[in-house]
Nucleic acid binder design. Structure first.
Length: 499
RNA sequence: GGCGGCGUACCCAAGUGGUAAGGGAGAGGUCUGCAAAACCUCGAUGCAGCGGUUCGAAUCCGCUCGCCGCCUCCA
C-alpha cells in the first residue's frame, strides 16, 4: 500500500509501526459555526480511508478531535449572547447531524481540547524546563530557534526568508517572530483555567499534541487534515511534540485538497462557502459523498451544481442496474442453462474486479479510479443480463458480482442503499411529494403517493392492453410532469423519480 | 520575496516511462406500440506551448505561458 507523505513529498510504501495496527489522528473542526462543504470533504475522505484500512484487516485506532476553546468561539459567544461552552456544544451537535447524513462514522475517540487542560499544562511545563518555551506576562511561547528541524513539513528552510514577504504582525514581546503561543493568559471575563503561569487557555496547536500523546502515543502512524493545516498548525505540532518527547511524532502526514469556487479556495474569510446544510437541502447526501470521492483526495475540487447533478445521475445508473440484477436473481431457476461466453473468464472484468479495486485503493487511496472500476463492473453486469442468461450457473456468477459490488460499496460507504430506498430519498429531495406533506408525515405520505402511482400504472396497463396508446401516453406524460418517469420493462412497468 | 501545486476530449476525471480508465453531454444503431432504461458503434494520432533525454514520454529534465495555494484564522 502506498501513501503520499507530505513530510517527504513522495508516495511511500506504508508500513505501520506495529504490524497490523494503525494509530491515526485527524484534525477535526473548531466548533464556532456550522460546517461547509470543505469540512465535509476532509471528513468524508478520511472516513473512507479509515474504512479501507479496516477492510484491509488493520486494527485501526482512529481519533478525531474537536477544538472547543479558541478566540473564534469566544467571539461567537459574544455575538450570539451565549456562554462559550454552549456555543461549542451547539456546533458539535450540528457537526454530528451533518456528518452522519454524509455517512461519516464517528471516530473511535473524539476528544476535546478542554478535556485535556491538565495534559496540555504538563507538556508546556516540560517544554519550559527543557528550554524550548518561555513565559512572558502569563503567556507561554514555543521557542522556534530551539528546534532546529522546524520547517521540515512545510518545506520552509530559512526563517528569515519566511518572514520577508509574510503578513504577520509580530508581537514585540516574543524573542523570535516565529515563536508561537502555547498558553494564552485570559482577560477579565474570558474562559480561563488555572496554570503555573496564571489563569489562561491553551494555544491552538498544543491541544493536538496533548491528545495524540494521551490517546495514541509518542509516535503515531498517520496524522491527517486539510492542506491548509500544513503550516503553521502541523509544523508547530511537530516542533512541540518532538521537542517534548524527543521521539518522531508522526510517520505519515496526509493532507486533503481544497474545495474551490471559481478556482479560488472556499473559505470563511472570502465568504464563498456553501454549508453542508444548504447543499443537503438540494442534493441527496449520498450524491454529495460520491461527488467528493470521485476526485482524488489531494486534488482540488471545483464546487458547482453540475457535478452534483451528475453524481445523482451516476447513483441512478448504479441503482437501476442493481435493481435489474436483483430482478434477475429473484427469477425462478428453471432447468434451462444459458450464459453468454467470456463472462466468467479468470481475467474478465467480473473476476478481476476485486483485484482492481484493491489496487486502486492501495495506490494512495485512489477512490476516483476505484469508482471507475465499479462502473466497469456495472457495465459488464448489464451486458451479461442483456444476453438473457438463465440457470444456476448464471445466477451464481451474478450473485458473486453483486457481493463484490456491495463489498466495495461498503468500503466507500456509497452505493449501499436499496434501489427503493434511493427512490424514496429522491421523492423527498426532488420535492415530488408536496413539502408540507413530506415534512408532516413523511413515510405515510410517501406511501400514499406510491399507491397513487401504482394505480395509475395499472390504469395505463389496461389502456395498453386495449391498445389505447393515447390514454397510455397521456398518463405517462402526466406523471412525468409530476416528476415521475415510467419505464415499461419485461412483464411490468417500473417508475422512478426524474432527476 | 520564499515554498508548493495544477493545466488530459464539449464538461467532470483517472493515468508518474510502454502506446490515453470511468462518468456526463452528443451522433448513429439494437430493443420498444411509441418512449425510457440498458447495450453496441463513433468520438483526444494526442495530454497548455516549445525544446531535450530515451528504442519508447501525458508521465523524466529545461524553458515559456496561464491559473491556484501556503507564508494570518482556515478542512
Amino acid at each position: 500500500m502506498k501513501i503520499y507523505n507530505t513530510l517527504t513529498g513522495k508516495k511511500e510504501t506504508f508500513v505501520p509501526l506495529y504490524q497490523g495496527r494503525i494509530d491515526m489522528y485527524v484534525c477535526g473542526v473548531t466548533v464556532y459555526d456550522v460546517c461547509h462543504i470543505g469540512h465535509a470533504r476532509s471528513a468524508v475522505v478520511f472516513d473512507a480511508i479509515r474504512r479501507y484500512f479496516r477492510h484491509r484487516g488493520y486494527d485501526i485506532r482512529f481519533v478525531k478531535n474537536f477544538t472547543d476553546i479558541d478566540d473564534k468561539i469566544i467571539n461567537r459567544a459574544a455575538s450570539e449572547g451565549l456562554p462559550w461552552d454552549k456555543v461549542a456544544e451547539k456546533y458539535i451537535k450540528k457537526y454530528y447531524e451533518d456528518m452522519h447524513r454524509l455517512g461519516v462514522a464517528d471516530a473511535d475517540l473524539e476528544p476535546r481540547a478542554t478535556g485535556h487542560i491538565k495534559e496540555i499544562i504538563e507538556i508546556i511545563k516540560g517544554l519550559v524546563e527543557k528550554g524550548h518555551a518561555y513565559e512572558i506576562d502569563g503567556d507561554v511561547y514555543f521557542s522556534v530557534p530551539s528546534f532546529p528541524e522546524y520547517g521540515k513539513l512545510s518545506g520552509r528552510k530559512k526563517l528569515e526568508e519566511m518572514l520577508a514577504g509574510a503578513r504577520v504582525e509580530v508581537d514585540e514581546r516574543k524573542k523570535n517572530p516565529m515563536d508561537f503561543a502555547l498558553w494564552k493568559s485570559s482577560k477579565e471575563g474570558e474562559p480561563a483555567w488555572d496554570s503555573p503561569w496564571g489563569p489562561g487557555r491553551p494555544g491552538w496547536h498544543i491541544e493536538c499534541s496533548a491528545m495524540v500523546l494521551k490517546h495514541l502515543g509518542q509516535t503515531i502512524d498517520i496524522h491527517a487534515g486539510g492542506a491548509d493545516l500544513i503550516f503553521p498548525h502541523h509544523e508547530n505540532e511537530i516542533a512541540q511534540s518532538e521537542a517534548y518527547t524527543e521521539k518522531p511524532f508522526v510517520r505519515y502526514w496526509m493532507h486533503n485538497g481544497f474545495i474551490t469556487v471559481n478556482k479560488e479556495k472556499m473559505s470563511k474569510s472570502l465568504g464563498n462557502f456553501f454549508t453542508i446544510e444548504e447543499i443537503l437541502q438540494r442534493f441527496d447526501p449520498e450524491a454529495v459523498r460520491l461527488f467528493l470521492l470521485q476526485t482524488h483526495y489531494r486534488s482540488p475540487i471545483e464546487f458547482s451544481n453540475e457535478p452534483l447533478e451528475e453524481a445523482e445521475h451516476t447513483l441512478e445508473r448504479f441503482y437501476q442496474s442493481l435493481e435489474r440484477l436483483d430482478d434477475f436473481l429473484m427469477l425462478p431457476e428453471g432447468k434451462h442453462e444459458s450464459s453468454p461466453a467470456g463472462f466468467d473468464d479468470e481475467n474478465g472484468i467480473i473476476a478481476s474486479f476485486k483485484k482492481h479495486f484493491v489496487q486502486a485503493m492501495d495506490d494512495d487511496f485512489n477512490t476516483a479510479l476505484a469508482i471507475g472500476h465499479i462502473f466497469e463492473l456495472i457495465k459488464e453486469i448489464n451486458r451479461f443480463l442483456d444476453a438473457k442468461p438463465a440457470g444456476a450457473k448464471a445466477k451464481e456468477l451474478m450473485s458473486g458480482a453483486k457481493r463484490e459490488l456491495l463489498e466495495a460499496a461498503g468500503v466507500l460507504n456509497v452505493f449501499n442503499r436499496t434501489p427503493s430506498e434511493w427512490q424514496r430519498a429522491l421523492l423527498k429531495i426532488k420535492k415530488v411529494v408536496a413539502e408540507e406533506h413530506a415534512v408532516l408525515k413523511e413515510d405515510v405520505q410517501i406511501t400514499k403517493f406510491e399507491i397513487d402511482i401504482e394505480s395509475l400504472i395499472a390504469e395505463r396497463q389496461k389502456a395498453r392492453e386495449s391498445k389505447d396508446w393515447a390514454r397510455a401516453d397521456a398518463i405517462r406524460a402526466d406523471l412525468e410532469k409530476r416528476g415521475i418517469i415510467l419505464e415499461d420493462k419485461q412483464g411490468k412497468t417500473a417508475w422512478r423519480v426524474k432527476i
